[in-house]
Computed example of a mutant assay.
Amino acid sequence: MSNELEAFVEYISVTRALSKRSVEAYRGDLNTLEDTLGKPLISIDSKTLFSALSIYKNKRTLNRKLSSVNAFFDFCYKSQFKDEKTKLKLSKIPKLLPKFISYKEIQSSLDLIDRSSWIGLRDYALIIYLYATGARISECLSLKSDDIDGEWLRIRHAKGEKERIVPIAKVAVEAVKSYLNEFKYENEFIWCNYRGENLSRISAYKITQKYLGVSPHVLRHSYATALITGGADLRVVQELLGHSSLLTTQIYTHIQKQNLKETVDVCHPMAKENI
């Protein structure tokens, strides 16, 4: 691994405080490129890089690799390792509409959970918490007791350690409290497995899959969708989700437009008239 790449890995690990998973993804992408091409990444021209990455036929995979390279080059430019700013163009891919489920579907599934044990109380609280906060699963699993203050939630473990404070529904707070009252192990983190150890991403996925048939991330989309259809401003949703750019939040604009159209169709007197 070149000196510049080592410096970049240290930067995203320490300064940006990215998760171990993200750091390893960047390191793997960039180190593989250097090994394949046999020289420091900083000295490789764009044409050679595109040629090396052409083996990836899946555009989403290709774009992930290109994003890693762009992040590295941006770091090198800002650190004055590189005189010119280089940015590789990402492949265009069709935008997929975010999958979401309705509150009624969630309520129906919650009724199926046996809450006679602390495991059942945990599953119930976890689903409610994810839907009530729109938190990423990584943020959720990093939750500690002192991160909940009344009906406010402090999320300190977001991407790049960007702290944000969001309101949390009282029903979610009460669900978490009920679960913790029955939880007999000692752990600073709230979400734990049956051994009292930190709950893993895979286990969290199995919980939401078991009761809802979806991944935890779908509950984040469902949270955003509920806000948009309820009339929330897109910038407010951006703040609540912790998106650094409004462009990321704009995947929900199709929901906003559809909701506006349905409102006009129902409420405007001319909507049902024929000319």
Rank of each mutant, 00 (worst) to 15 (best):
I202V: 10
L234C: 05
D114H: 09
H221E: 07
G150Q: 07
V176L: 12
L241I: 04
S222N: 12
S200M: 05
N193L: 08
F189L: 08
Y252W: 10
R164I: 01
E163F: 01
I251W: 03
L126R: 11
N198Q: 05
A125Q: 06
V166K: 00
E197V: 03
S116C: 09
C140E: 02
L143A: 13
H157K: 13
E239L: 00
H217M: 07
S244Y: 01
L241A: 07
Q250F: 13
L110Q: 07
G196C: 05
L112A: 09
E161M: 01
L143E: 05
A232S: 15
L126Q: 06
R154V: 09
R115V: 12
I127S: 11
I113G: 12
N193S: 04
I148Q: 02
G134H: 11
L112M: 11
L246H: 00
L246R: 00
K170G: 09
L219P: 09
S178V: 08
G120N: 12
Q209D: 14
F183N: 04
A232F: 08
W152G: 00
G230P: 06
G134Q: 11
T208F: 14
Y124T: 04
G231Y: 04
E174W: 14
A204F: 11
A135K: 05
D147N: 11
G196M: 10
I119N: 14
Y131W: 10
S116M: 08
Y129M: 08
E197I: 03
E239F: 00
L199S: 09
E139F: 05
K177L: 10
L126A: 08
I127T: 10
L234W: 04
Y252L: 03
G134D: 06
E182C: 15
Y223C: 06
R122V: 08
